[in-house]
Computed example of a mutant assay.
Amino acid sequence: MLDFDTYTRLLALYADYAAALDNGALDKWPAFFTEDCTYRLQSRENYDSGYPLATLSFESRGMLKDRIYGVTETIFHDPYYQRHVVGVPRVHTFDGTRITAEANYAVFRTKPDGLTSVYNVGRYIDTIRCEPEQLLFESRICVFDSEMIPNSIIYPI
């Protein structure tokens, strides 16, 4: 059973993660993860079938940093804003050092000259490592529901 303090820290992790992405603080994104992390953006069909194919797949904090460098320094794309709406995380297990949890998410996209649209909807499937000073994602799998997604996903979900 997760104690109140740890659950509060878990809620803060989810909220701070979304706020960093929504506010364009992409350089902060890798710091939410352990050094030996996994981050994947994967379709529901592939996840449910056990297929490894993912839209994005990174296996370390270094790879996350490289992605942010690519997004901010080398990739040309039309600018847009993201807004995350994240459900309350449902804790599956807690062994004192790791939490496994799941939360629904919806990400909206707004282009400066356009209307807001639904960009990506699904669920986060997370393993969170409990460090003395902070909680960090050891694994974050973003399982999106739709079989159709924009032909390029630039920013993390």
Rank of each mutant, 00 (worst) to 15 (best):
E138D: 15
V143G: 00
V85A: 15
C130V: 15
T97Y: 07
M148L: 14
D66S: 14
T110I: 11
R83E: 07
E102M: 10
T93A: 13
G62H: 08
I149N: 02
T93M: 07
L136D: 08
R109W: 02
R67E: 02
T55Y: 14
S152K: 13
Y80T: 06
I68C: 04
I99S: 09
E131Y: 14
G50C: 06
R90L: 12
H92K: 11
H84D: 14
S152Y: 11
L53H: 13
M148N: 10
G122C: 06
M148H: 03
A103M: 05
I128S: 04
I149C: 09
I125F: 00
C142L: 07
Y119M: 06
Y69T: 13
S117H: 09
H84T: 11
K65W: 10
G50M: 06
S139N: 10
D48R: 08
K65Y: 09
P132I: 10
D66V: 03
H92A: 13
R83Y: 08
G62W: 04
A101T: 08
T55F: 14
I99D: 14
C130E: 12
Y124M: 01
F76Y: 04
V71F: 12
P150W: 01
Q134N: 08
V85R: 05
S152V: 09
T127N: 03
N104F: 05
P79C: 00
H84F: 01
D78V: 15
G122W: 11
L53Q: 14
T72E: 14
G114D: 12
G70K: 05
E73L: 07
Y81S: 09
V86M: 05
V121K: 02
T97N: 10
S60M: 04
C142K: 01
V88R: 03
V71K: 06
Y47R: 13
I125K: 08
I154T: 12
E133Q: 13
F108S: 09
Y51R: 15
V118L: 15
I128D: 06
R129Q: 13
R83M: 09
P79K: 08
D66C: 01
H92D: 14
E102T: 14
S49N: 12
G114A: 14
I141V: 15
P150G: 02
E59M: 02
L135P: 02
M63V: 03
L56Q: 12
G50V: 03
P79D: 10
E133L: 11
Y124C: 01
V88F: 06
E138W: 04
S139F: 02
V121H: 03
T55I: 05
Y51M: 11
G50T: 05
V121G: 01
N151Q: 09
D145E: 12
Y80W: 04
G122K: 07
L56W: 04
Y81C: 05
F94M: 03
K65I: 04
P132T: 08
G50Q: 06
L64E: 08
I68S: 06
F94K: 01
F76Q: 12
P79G: 05
S152Q: 12
S152W: 05
V86A: 04
Y119C: 03
F76K: 13
R44W: 02
I75P: 01
D78E: 14
T127W: 05
